[in-house]
Nucleic acid binder design. Structure first.
Lengths: 201, 201, 201, 201
DNA sequence: CATGAATGAGGTTTCATTCAT
DNA sequence: AATGAATGAAACCTCATTCAT
């Protein structure tokens, strides 16, 4: 990479970092492009060389979480297709859980940003991705039911309840205003509660 | 009520209604006071005779849901204090469920508004009320555990999971983009899933 | 008129005057709304209470000339309809000439502005009005030919040549860089030249 | 010409062509240097290697018409000086007419650009050239009067009227919104009308 | 009480111009 | 010579808020 490209990459990273922090502090709506540029250490006009709008910057930020998230589910789907027997399927789900945990931990701020802005107005693009996500999770739940891994029931309903529970827990962990114990313990206890929703075993 | 007061009440109601609709359409931030005044059929200056800022109007709107919600939990707490035996306690919880359903149904738009804006920035006042809510729910769960109505466990964790599940379900119902069946059926099925989290019976 | 309306009218007049002067000095394109507001002695935002864009202000300015101009031709047309005999028709044309002269003299700056901006880009609305004007003049010429007041010929061609000649003369008079003698003398001599194009007599 | 110079010439031509088209489409003011460079297929910075400002490019464009135009009049003046007798003088005028026609036909876009921008602001340099042009035409007219080729009269006035008539006709031909018949016919008929202004014969 | 005209701060966006590569 | 990234001035426009009527 030439000196020029390196510099561009550095500026882009600075803009993303500045956007992430400011969006979390004051929300996308209340953050001005001027603020982002200043925090990133570039001129106002420079912002527009990288992103057309602050919404585009926001999308790049959440895509950094949503794209890998979707890829995890892609791999799960492929894995379940090949899996023979309940043991193999269970292994796929366990790998998924580990990958989700890794992703969630490595992208904490982006996830928090996503939670904060997701239900806001003019987030139609995001809502579409959320719906796609819900569909995929529902499909995985349905498969698990079909294979007898969990109790039979309404896969969509169960998926929504679990998704909501995880969201709320994760949100409170990220915010950190409630004492919730060590992450490891928390994860273990949450897994027990959520598996009850599905009726595992 | 005199003519004057009647007129004031009518204008106030018009402002609340206009704010509710516009906030839901475009979000609080993107809605201008001019828009609200116009939709309510009053002059811009008149808005300030009723509310200092549009955030004050917003708070009045969500208070219309949050205050009754808190009152329900107040009554539950008082009821449980007086309740003697598991049967009486259960009756209190059932009344609570009915009241929550009524409230949720009668204030759908305000609840949706709350969901939409709750996690946004500068909603510190709201966050405080949310934390208070979580504390109360946790307390109710703890009581239920102490009295042997549900399985012993971490009351806070269970409360958060249940709250998250309900939020997500209710949100999807209000948005209406996902086919979820009749409300009555949905409520019944959701009650089963959520009671599993608590380990009822 | 109440105090408020009087004030509004005064501000509007100030904006029109400021716009006229600044547009003439630097052209519509190069004049900023801020300049206009400052020259008119109002705040930037106030401009937008009166006009949506500076182009709207410009249109109001030229309409102040174009509307009366069109009305003159309306009256001529009506007059010629009623006129019986060449003498009456000629009288109509003479009244027209007098009215045009009055209008041109009373609106000099607006006419100059019109000349300056007319052929510029994004003046589609103006061009349409210009074409309408050309059509009307052509029609008058055709009528004069039909009635034997002037020599028979191509009415459109003659109209365009005369219009162009008048435009150029008027433009030079308004600019004042060329010594052209007294207006009265000039008008008389110009009338002779232009009537030759039509072949009067 | 070496490779280097050939390349430079090609780029210069591309810039001129791009400027001509874009200036006609959107006006000089609304056209950005970036647009010109892009259309010419060069980088933004490269523009500045050829022209200091877009106004310089504009001037080069109109000079491509104005310089030859002035040279025609130079030749006419020289020709009239040498011409002995009305016949020879007339021949000079006829050559002039032919040359003007050729020039006007070969540079249509540049002429249209000139018409469009000529009366705009900050075109002081252009206005000076226009005044020089008017002086020369007036001189030619005066000469023709002195030699008895046309009727005696105010040469400046006649020149302005003729110039205006030609401008308007040529402008309408270039714009093409008015049906004006074949150029040859039009020219013949226009010549008749304009010669009447001068009182030929 | 109610109005809506006026204000000016603050946001977005474009663009001529410079300069390191 | 040529590039195009970066700059920051300057334009546009909106809006919460004030205040005379």
């Amino acid at each position: 990479m030439g000196r020029r490209e390196q510099n561009k990459a550095k500026k882009n990273a600075a803009l993303l970092q500045a956007g992430l922090e400011l969006f979390l502090e004051g929300g996308v709506e209340r953050t001005s492009i001027e603020q982002i540029a200043a925090q990133a250490g570039v001129a106002r006009g420079t912002f527009y060389l990288y992103y057309d709008t602050k919404e585009a910057l926001f999308e790049t930020l959440v895509d950094g979480f949503l794209d890998p998230l979707m890829q995890i589910f892609d791999r799960v789907e492929a894995g379940l297709d090949k899996a023979q027997g309940p043991g193999a399927a269970l292994a796929v789900y366990q790998v998924m859980a580990a990958e989700l945990a890794m992703l969630g931990l490595s992208q904490q701020k982006r996830v928090l940003l996503l939670f904060r802005e997701m239900r806001g107005p003019s987030m139609d693009g995001l809502r579409a991705r959320e719906l796609a996500l819900i569909e995929r999770i529902t499909e995985l739940t349905r498969l698990a039911m079909d294979r007898g891994l969990v109790e039979r029931g309404d896969p969509q309903l169960a998926s929504l309840v679990i998704l909501g529970g995880i969201e709320r827990l994760y949100f409170e962990v990220l915010i950190g205003e409630i004492e919730l114990g060590s992450p490891a313990e928390l994860a273990a206890k949450a897994a027990v509660l959520l598996s009850r929703v599905l009726g595992v075993g």
